[in-house]
Nucleic acid binder design. Structure first.
Ligand SMILES: [Mn+2]
Ligand SMILES: [Mn+2]
Ligand SMILES: [Zn+2]
Ligand SMILES: [Zn+2]
Lengths: 157, 157
DNA sequence: TATATTATTAGCAATGATTATCATTAACAA
DNA sequence: TTGTTAATGATAATCATTGCTAATAATATA
């Protein structure tokens, strides 16, 4: 039986290698931060979280790494309208795989939801098909988001 | 019968005055640009369009004016993910009042669509109601967008 | 294991859309 | 026509993100 001295291999090591990417401390650390939260974090959030433990990982590296992880589809990039992108793990036991977002315009909190997903998927499929044909588009993605005020922000308005 | 010498009054003059805003050349010109197109224009697009006729209207004023018009709900501000906001008239004979967008990630072209709007509205209402209760949010807005490649951008990939 | 190759990184400068400042101008109520 | 004050233009500042480059570290190879 192997002991724990060697760096634990994660399933995505193979994905990295297969795409010609190296497995680095920064990449592991950033994935780890995202794996340990159910929040939707900005590049700077991640940088701040990392900094006490890895003070040598720069903000630029965080951005670059998030870009790589995004291209590998290991994470999702999410724009909520405040000009600061948020990121989350693509596959996580902490959240449903296909979900959308509820954004508080007050505190910028993001809530995952997957209610009504079945009807939604049905409508989306119909719509995508219809639009593809009518407008001659190859549709690759969609975005559904609700905006409002959370219970903490509503009182102070 | 009145002649055409005086500046034509538009219906939104009243809306301006009622909210304590003055009617200015820049505001009329910018609304006019948006009224004459069915495109979704950026602040700079509008500035460029205006510049030959009104070289004294600065880009800053375009931004400020778009902000005012947006607050008055005369126009919609639209983010398509390239970090540059687009604007369109809220009510226009050129497009359906309630519509969503199909965005080409290649050339950033935006197409209005209102197909499947009835089913969509139904689902949105149900979803909003469900989410409001479950997550204790006051939902004020929603965003639905499809992304893909238009017929011109698809070949060159 | 030692070495060569080259992807990755840190630190910093640059970018680009949008906003803030402030002195000047123009709308418009009286 | 005039006084009040909102609106403007020029410019500087902001701020998230990206570009640059010499140094470093991950991996393949001997
Ligand atoms: Mn999420
Ligand atoms: Mn539109
Ligand atoms: Zn909130
Ligand atoms: Zn296109």
């Amino acid at each position: 039986m192997k002991n724990g001295r060697c760096r634990e291999k994660h399933w995505w090591h193979g994905k990295f290698r297969g795409c010609g990417y190296r497995v680095t401390v920064a990449r592991e650390a950033i994935l780890d931060v995202l794996a340990r939260t159910d929040k939707h974090m900005s590049a700077e959030d991640i940088y701040m979280k990392l900094h006490p433990i890895y003070p040598n990982i720069g903000l630029t590296t965080v951005y670059r790494t998030l870009d790589v992880l995004s291209n590998l589809a290991l994470i999702f990039k999410l724009e909520i309208g405040d000009g600061r992108a948020r990121y989350e793990l693509a596959e996580s036991p902490k959240k449903p795989s296909h979900h959308h977002h509820l954004v508080c315009t007050g505190c910028k909190k993001v809530v995952d939801y997957s209610d009504f997903i079945d009807q939604e998927v049905k409508l989306l499929q119909e719509t995508e098909k219809g639009l593809s044909e009518k407008y001659n588009f190859k549709i690759t993605n969609h975005l559904i988001q609700f905006y409002g005020l959370c219970s903490e922000c509503l009182p102070r308005t």
